[in-house]
Lab assay of single mutants.
Amino acid sequence: MTSCHIAEEHIQKVAIFGGTHGNELTGVFLVKHWLENGAEIQRTGLEVKPFITNPRAVKKCTRYIDCDLNRIFDLENLGKKMSEDLPYEVRRAQEINHLFGPKDSEDSYDIIFDLHNTTSNMGCTLILEDSRNNFLIQMFHYIKTSLAPLPCYVYLIEHPSLKYATTRSIAKYPVGIEVGPQPQGVLRADILDQMRKMIKHALDFIHHFNEGKEFPPCAIEVYKIIEKVDYPRDENGEIAAIIHPNLQDQDWKPLHPGDPMFLTLDGKTIPLGGDCTVYPVFVNEAAYYEKKEAFAKTTKLTLNAKSIRCCLH
């Protein structure tokens, strides 16, 4: 018999989150649709729960009410004593943790798909938090293969000092899905179709896995975050240069030392320094102006996964 890495157990509980950011409308629209008619997301033997994560922000069509829901799922915020004085999103995070967690427990949901849009030209993107997770690498390989020839990129946010504390991190297997470009507060049919297909293929993978299909060893190309880059700023902290036209919409493309990065209003080009080629992502993302992030630098690498098969009882 072929030796293989056996994944822990079959997958039982899956959640699909929309509206973690209330103005990213593809996930909101799909989740609302699936709450009314969820036939397309159901798979035999699998509990799939669509869920609106930040209903107040969705109602106002804004990213958040008090603070970013997708950055506060750490033990400090989840452990705060519940009171009306807490920011709305912290209270909501505790409610979500109660419903789908608790985080880092045996009772937490197996998989959470968190649906997002970006204003950046990132196409279909899967966000991975753990480079050693054979199950998710296999799932992402399946999704990428199923979507081809449509490109699907994998963004690895594993980093020693950049801690995200994402909404989906309460699950055993957290999956971020990011599709763009799409303006905030807008629905685009092409973007919706791409996100819908990503979810379909992900659920198909889980179904095949649960039925005992063995997935042979595989490898995927990923883009691992190195650092986030702020806009150049003046002495008052105001933005002093904008994304250069040569960099705009060039997510995932190589940016070499000396290539144009920013452009000042008086026409001066600010190039990339250093001696390493990087791959920019979230270029000129609207939501990241407040976070002082013009783009993120990534490096390209390959992740390998062992063969996996479900432990059938």
Rank of each mutant, 00 (worst) to 15 (best):
T2D: 15
T2V: 07
S3N: 13
S3F: 07
C4M: 13
C4G: 15
C4H: 15
H5N: 14
H5E: 15
A7M: 14
E9G: 12
E9Q: 14
E9K: 15
H10F: 09
H10K: 15
H10I: 10
I11R: 01
Q12T: 09
K13P: 04
V14A: 07
V14K: 05
V14E: 03
A15I: 03
I16H: 02
I16Y: 00
F17R: 08
G19W: 02
T20N: 01
T20S: 10
T20K: 05
H21E: 05
G22V: 08
N23K: 05
N23W: 00
N23D: 14
N23S: 09
N23R: 05
E24Q: 09
E24D: 15
E24M: 02
E24H: 08
L25H: 06
L25R: 15
T26Y: 02
T26P: 11
G27H: 03
F29A: 15
L30H: 04
L30N: 05
V31P: 05
V31C: 15
V31A: 15
K32F: 03
H33K: 15
H33G: 13
W34Q: 01
W34T: 02
L35T: 09
L35I: 10
L35M: 14
L35D: 08
E36P: 00
N37L: 05
G38P: 15
A39C: 11
E40N: 01
I41L: 13
Q42D: 09
Q42R: 11
T44D: 14
G45T: 09
G45N: 10
G45M: 01
L46P: 04
E47Q: 13
E47H: 12
V48N: 00
V48Y: 04
V48C: 08
K49H: 12
P50H: 03
P50F: 01
I52D: 04
N54Y: 00
A57G: 07
V58M: 09
V58N: 03
K59G: 12
K59E: 13
K60Q: 13
C61K: 13
C61S: 12
T62E: 13
T62N: 12
Y64C: 09
I65H: 07
I65D: 08
D66S: 09
C67K: 11
L69W: 07
L69M: 12
L69K: 06
N70A: 10
N70W: 02
R71M: 12
F73H: 11
D74F: 09
D74H: 11
E76Y: 10
E76Q: 12
L78E: 11
K80T: 14
K81M: 14
M82F: 14
E84D: 14
E84P: 14
D85K: 13
D85F: 12
P87S: 11
Y88F: 10
Y88Q: 07
Y88M: 07
E89I: 02
E89Y: 01
V90N: 09
R91D: 09
R92Y: 06
Q94P: 06
E95Q: 12
E95D: 11
N97R: 11
H98Q: 14
F100Y: 10
F100G: 05
P102T: 09
P102S: 09
K103S: 11
K103N: 11
D104R: 13
D104M: 12
D104A: 13
S105A: 13
S105H: 13
D107R: 12
D107Y: 12
D107L: 10
S108T: 13
Y109F: 12
Y109D: 00
Y109L: 00
Y109G: 02
D110Q: 08
I111G: 01
I111H: 03
I111V: 15
I111L: 09
F113C: 02
L115D: 03
L115T: 02
H116C: 08
H116W: 02
N117Y: 05
N117C: 11
T119C: 09
M122W: 00
G123D: 03
C124E: 05
C124I: 08
C124S: 07
I127P: 01
I127V: 13
L128T: 01
L128F: 06
E129A: 08
R132L: 08
R132C: 13
N134I: 06
L136T: 03
L136K: 04
L136C: 06
Q138I: 02
Q138H: 08
M139W: 01
F140R: 04
F140L: 07
H141A: 06
Y142Q: 03
K144W: 01
T145V: 12
S146Y: 09
A148D: 13
P149F: 00
P151L: 00
Y153C: 08
Y153K: 14
V154A: 04
I157T: 15
I157F: 10
E158K: 01
H159N: 14
H159I: 07
S161E: 15
S161P: 13
S161M: 10
L162K: 15
K163S: 12
Y164C: 14
A165E: 14
A165G: 14
A165Y: 10
T167I: 09
R168L: 07
S169E: 06
S169A: 10
S169I: 05
I170P: 09
A171M: 02
A171R: 04
A171Q: 04
Y173N: 11
V175M: 00
G176T: 14
G176V: 13
I177D: 03
E178K: 15
E178L: 15
V179G: 00
G180M: 05
P181E: 02
Q182Y: 05
Q182K: 05
Q184Y: 13
Q184V: 11
Q184D: 14
G185V: 04
G185T: 00
V186R: 03
V186P: 04
L187P: 12
D190Q: 07
I191M: 09
L192D: 02
L192C: 12
L192F: 09
M195F: 05
R196N: 01
R196F: 04
R196M: 05
R196W: 04
K197T: 12
K197I: 10
M198I: 15
I199T: 04
K200H: 11
K200M: 13
A202M: 05
L203W: 05
D204F: 03
F205C: 05
F205V: 05
H207P: 03
F209D: 05
E211W: 06
G212R: 02
K213D: 08
E214M: 10
E214R: 08
F215Q: 00
P217V: 02
P217M: 05
C218E: 04
A219T: 14
A219N: 12
I220G: 05
E221H: 01
E221F: 06
V222Q: 06
V222Y: 04
Y223I: 04
K224C: 00
I225M: 15
I226H: 08
E227K: 03
E227N: 07
K228M: 11
K228W: 11
Y231H: 00
Y231K: 00
D234M: 07
E235C: 10
N236S: 11
N236V: 08
N236C: 09
N236A: 10
E238I: 05
E238R: 10
A240V: 09
A240T: 15
A240Y: 08
A241H: 05
H244P: 03
P245S: 00
Q248V: 09
Q248Y: 06
Q248C: 09
D249A: 05
Q250S: 11
D251Q: 01
D251Y: 03
W252P: 02
K253C: 08
P254V: 04
P254R: 01
P254Y: 03
P254A: 11
L255A: 00
G258M: 07
G258E: 11
G258L: 06
D259K: 00
D259R: 01
M261K: 03
F262M: 04
F262E: 02
F262Y: 01
L263W: 07
L263A: 07
T264A: 08
T264I: 04
L265R: 11
L265C: 10
D266L: 01
D266N: 08
K268V: 09
K268P: 00
T269H: 07
I270N: 03
G273S: 12
G273W: 01
G273C: 09
D275W: 04
D275T: 11
C276M: 15
C276V: 14
V278M: 06
V278K: 05
Y279F: 09
P280E: 05
V281T: 11
F282Q: 11
F282M: 11
V283D: 05
V283K: 05
N284K: 02
N284E: 00
N284Q: 04
A286C: 11
A287F: 10
Y289R: 15
Y289M: 15
Y289T: 15
Y289E: 15
K291P: 09
K291F: 07
K292I: 07
K292V: 08
K292S: 10
K292G: 15
A294W: 05
F295Q: 04
A296D: 07
K297V: 15
T298M: 06
T298H: 06
T298E: 00
T299A: 12
K300D: 04
L301H: 10
N304T: 14
N304Y: 12
A305C: 07
K306M: 11
S307N: 07
I308R: 05
R309D: 00
C310P: 07
C310K: 15
C310L: 12
L312T: 15
L312I: 14
